[in-house]
Amino acid sequence: MKQRVKVKLFSLYADAVGRSEVEVLLELGGRVSELLYSLAREYPVLSKAFSLVEPIVLVNGVRASGDQLIAGESEVAVVPPSAGG
């Protein structure tokens, strides 16, 4: 079974797509690495942006590894390395 996951985008990723949030189809209980794969497939421009800067996935605001599972209610964001200061 698949679920649609809302993904917040920041910095160059939001700019590349022209939106600050996109939706992607993911297997229920899918992993972070699968989310990135699905995003790259559904949004080719993101795939190219990912090759410029390796993306970081934040789940509920916390950096997630590729094999982490994404629960249905999670808040997911794709960001580049922070640029504060």
């Binding site: 920041f10 934040l58 580049p80 390395p81 922070s82 640029a83 504060g84 200061g85």
Partner: peptide, 8 residues
């Protein structure tokens, strides 16, 4: 600089 999700 490294840990806070701020972008510019």
């Amino acid at each position: 600089k490294r840990e806070v999700p701020i972008y510019k």
